Amino acid sequence: MASKEDVWNQWIDEYVSYDQPIPLYDTDAEGTVSVKRHGRDNRPVLRRSRQMESHLRTEGWKVVEDWKDSDDNYEGVIYMMYTLDGDTLVPRYIGKAGKYGRDDEGLSANLQNIRTNNTKFARWGDGYAYHIGELSAVVLNHQDDESVNRDRDPKGKYQKWADALFVPDSRTLREEIYFWARAWQIEDTGPFYGFETSLEALEYNLINLASDLFPDRLLNSEGA
């Protein structure tokens, strides 16, 4: 019977190409992330790399076109933030952006205008309540902005990200952070048994595997 490590590695080898990894952030030679301005308040946000944005737009657009054509070949986008330990891919965060909105018919707001708008950007957007926006609020110290209506403490989850990924009180990365995404087709197979696996089940299985194999590195709390 295959070990969890074997199952993980086999799936990674099949689906995740990281021989030329895509950096998540735009950084200088010292690993300091550059900043841009976003929103009506012109607040600072961490800048994603152009390679990352191009990659996510390409994968996200496959899902958008599938929805427009009613082909139902794709379920959404699976994504992973990761680091490298030698030749070993170390997952840091795993998530998804499903194709449908809350009514299970309309296109998800996370994917709308993905080629032109960075606010939501398949959950990696610059807006508050999205990964880059919330992480920027912590790292760049504007998480207490009273103009933002928040349902929960803006720290917590993204404070954990900031502590794990950045040198304290700076926007310099502890190590290079990479990004991978894939438009998930209904015929694609998950890490167990080689069967077709839904996007929701895939995310669940990957998080569970990664939390067992990399318990001190994975930043997911939901599903771990």
Rank of each mutant, 00 (worst) to 15 (best):
S211T: 07
E59M: 14
H55P: 03
S17C: 06
D188E: 06
V139N: 09
S17H: 14
Y74C: 03
M1N: 09
K96Y: 05
Q159A: 07
A224P: 01
Q51V: 00
T172E: 08
L219N: 02
N141H: 13
D151K: 11
L111Q: 12
D188F: 10
R92C: 01
Y25E: 01
F166T: 00
R152Y: 15
P21A: 04
T27V: 15
S3T: 15
W11E: 03
K120G: 03
S3W: 09
G60I: 01
A201V: 05
P21D: 01
N117V: 08
D145E: 11
F192K: 08
G190R: 07
E134Q: 14
R92E: 05
S170Q: 09
S70L: 10
E222V: 02
D69E: 11
P168F: 04
P23G: 04
T172W: 04
L206A: 06
W180Y: 14
Y79N: 04
E14A: 15
F195P: 02
I78E: 01
D26H: 15
Y193N: 10
M81S: 08
M1V: 04
V33S: 06
I132C: 14
V148N: 06
F166G: 03
Q159T: 12
L202R: 07
V33R: 11
T83N: 06
E75Y: 04
W61S: 14
T83W: 02
F121C: 10
I114Q: 12
S34T: 14
L206N: 05
T27W: 13
K99W: 00
T189V: 13
A109K: 13
S49T: 02
G60D: 03
G194V: 03
Q159E: 15
Y158D: 01
V138M: 02
L173I: 07
R43Y: 08
L107N: 11
A162T: 04
F214M: 05
P191T: 01
A29P: 04
V16F: 13
D212T: 09
T32Q: 12
G194S: 03
K160G: 03
F195D: 12
L111W: 12
G101N: 05
S136Y: 10
G190L: 04
D151S: 13
L173N: 07
R43F: 07
V63F: 09
E75C: 02
L111R: 11
K120P: 00
V63N: 12
L24Q: 15
L107V: 00
F195W: 08
K155I: 00
L46S: 07
Y79H: 07
T119C: 11
G76I: 03
D41S: 12
P21C: 00
M80I: 06
D126F: 13
L219P: 02
S170N: 05
R40A: 11
S70R: 14
Y74S: 06
L173H: 07
